[in-house]
Design a protein around this nucleic acid. Sequence first.
DNA 1: GTCTATAAGGAGATAGAC
DNA 2: GTCTATCTCCTTATAGAC
Lengths: 186, 186
Amino acid sequence: MSEKMSVKERIVETTARLFYHQGFNNTGINQIIAEANIAIGSLYNHFKSKEDLLLNYLEQEEITFFSNLDLFMKDEQKPEKKLLKFIDYRIQLQKQAGYSGCHFIKINAEIGRENEKVATRVINHKQKQRDYLKNLIQSFDSNSNLSKENLANIIFLMIEGAVASSSIKGNTQDLEVLRKTILELI
Amino acid sequence: MSEKMSVKERIVETTARLFYHQGFNNTGINQIIAEANIAIGSLYNHFKSKEDLLLNYLEQEEITFFSNLDLFMKDEQKPEKKLLKFIDYRIQLQKQAGYSGCHFIKINAEIGRENEKVATRVINHKQKQRDYLKNLIQSFDSNSNLSKENLANIIFLMIEGAVASSSIKGNTQDLEVLRKTILELI
DNA sequence: GTCTATAAGGAGATAGAC
DNA sequence: GTCTATCTCCTTATAGAC
């Protein structure tokens, strides 16, 4: 971690890394301050609780996911290729992340829907992905009898399943199979 | 919990309930012994560690999942109806579980692939579900250009995504949409 | 704003009585 | 086999010096 990062930036970076790769419940405040190389008083100066750290983490991941997606997609115009490129994006993310799955599914699996703020952020993130796919698929020529909305939902679910499988198996095999066959389904 | 259950049965029942609904890392030994109404010495007489409890939990869930599936399917012969019934099974499980998702995906999300024994049990469970679907789809008349194996994998991934979505949204909406449209895809 | 020291309670696990 | 008492370490969070 760069020495030039501010205390707050080091907290945010370390928290994100540990919550994602090691789990929220399995990551202690003490480990965060040790790896961020800061004092515990500084952490509680910037964030009022561990839950506050979690909510900030989810907000940042939400922003990062879609801004990086826009960058990844920016030079592609053809709808068919954009759909493949969306899958490429999730393949790339999994490879970079050491096949650790989806940030939001992991948090949902760990803490369920009991915390309303967390549950809302997870639902909203997944709905945004669905809407992104729906918009993309609207401009398709499709042979399917299914509605575009129905198709978008089905495709979204396949990708979600393939990302979950990526975390289980430690590879992107299912995402790649999906990429090869998805255009035949729609 | 029945007073007639043995100490070991009460440990197993309580552990399964808490690990599933509350999470592995979020469930302490002290809570298990309190809710099972046993002494901590008794727990460590039957299981040598918390990891041992976890491995036993996954083994039991594996057995329960497929034996209950066989019971659920036993009177249905037509492949098309069996496929729908497989989805019905997962809908029923989610409704009974208060939409808490898949036991194995949750554990993978919580502790990753670092523990080899746990990782193997998760992989094997998911592979068994895939094989079950593959066998079922082999006997289909399909209009699709995709291979039966490819179709089985795609369908498996859709169901997995819909179960994950069930846990996020607290309903079975995606599983039900999937049930309605799946026969048109194959 | 960042730091150290510490509170108050919970974690997993063991020893040894009965 | 089941129990109580206890060990050691770690958890989140706060107080108050600089």
